[in-house]
């Protein structure tokens, strides 16, 4: 079955064509992303109105690009999977309306996909993983642990109580005057820094060992920068120390969840899964505990439409379809 995936929940518009015969086993024929970083960089963050306006311009060309590089025509597509939430509602609507229009005119079935389910299943694009496994979804808007029991069966074990991990990276980068997006800048800067230079506190949520909290670290960095030590500390050391604290605060609940669940595979996914220190340390700690960490390659960690096509594929393969009246939901729950 040939599936067209469409994603526009935030600032990237993406389209992908995947081929699948059995749920979870997909061949990526094409995956295209129209990235807006250059547009939003000037503002130091995403401007929703600009994002949705740009999606209007780029959504059809990015779909055409995906179809062309897959070597197929719209008529060859047998099903459409599209993100319907969570995300910025103006952005979501562009991809969803476009997908509904295509479904309407071609008569092909359409399914609405939860963006988080896309991230949870993204590791399956390149790896064979048996159920159940543990997924750590960590990005600019989300930080949560899920027990993945089967397609469509996800149990949330823990989540952030305040900020997402990626948000902490962005905001600390801003505090340090480093620019946007913060995750990559801090990761790169940290490579030349001493991660033991500043001992930032590792927050944990009392009575909830699988939950996260990242708002305190932001305050700790702000306080440190304001102190007498602030102006003389090397930026690379502060960045590396901060990153190490965030990584530790992600690793500990994740390991606790893996043990609780008794699974040997931990899937690390979402934009922050691109962080090199997180990959390195989680893999090392998991290996010591007799477990393995599986992470998608970079292009499938960040927002993409291949994961949306994959997450829609098991339903399309079963012959399911959603009504054309499906709506975008900014706060869609999994």
């Amino acid at each position: 079955m040939l599936i067209l995936g469409i994603e526009s929940s935030c600032d990237d518009a993406a389209a992908a064509v995947v081929e699948t015969a059995t749920p979870g086993a997909v061949t990526i024929r094409a995956s295209a992303v129209a990235n807006q970083d250059d547009i939003h960089r000037a503002y130091g963050g995403i401007v929703p109105e600009l994002a949705s306006r740009n999606h209007v311009i780029t959504i059809l060309p990015v779909i055409e690009r995906a179809l062309r590089s897959a070597g197929c025509a719209l008529g060859d597509v047998e099903g459409i999977a599209v993100t319907r939430g969570p995300g910025l509602v103006g952005s979501l609507l562009v991809g969803l309306m476009c997908a509904k229009g295509l479904a309407q005119t071609t008569g092909k079935p359409i399914v609405g996909v939860n963006h988080i389910e896309g991230h949870i299943l993204a590791p399956l694009i390149e790896h064979r993983i048996g159920f159940p496994f543990l997924a750590l979804v960590v990005s600019g808007g989300h930080t949560a642990l899920f027990a993945v029991e089967n397609f469509g069966r996800y149990r949330r074990l823990g989540r952030t109580r305040d900020d997402a991990a990626g948000e902490a990276f962005d905001k600390v980068a801003k505090l340090m005057g480093l620019g946007y997006p913060g995750g990559k800048i801090i990761d790169d800067l940290s490579k030349g820094g001493n991660r033991k230079r500043v001992r930032f506190p590792r927050a944990h949520v009392r009575g909830a060992p699988m939950d996260f909290s990242f708002s305190g670290i932001k305050t700790s960095v702000a306080t440190m920068l304001r102190s007498a030590a602030g102006p003389i500390a090397a930026q690379a050391d502060v960045a590396a120390s901060f990153q190490e604290a965030v990584v530790d605060m992600l690793v500990k609940p994740t390991l606790a969840a893996a043990r609780e669940l008794g699974v040997d595979t931990i899937a690390l996914t979402g934009g922050v899964a691109a962080n090199s220190r997180l990959r390195e340390k989680l893999a090392a700690v998991a290996a010591d505990d007799g477990r393995r960490v599986v992470a998608p390659s970079l292009k499938f960690c960040t927002d993409n439409a291949a994961m949306i096509a994959l997450a829609g594929s098991y339903r399309l393969l079963r012959g399911e379809r959603d009504d054309l009246a499906i709506d975008a939901e900014a706060n869609l729950a999994l």
Binding site: P48, G87, G141, H142, T160, D163, A164, E167, A330
Partner: peptide
């Protein structure tokens, strides 16, 4: 009550 930075409105 989570940071609404990503979703903007909760």
């Amino acid at each position: 009550i989570l940071s609404p930075t990503f979703t903007m409105i909760q």
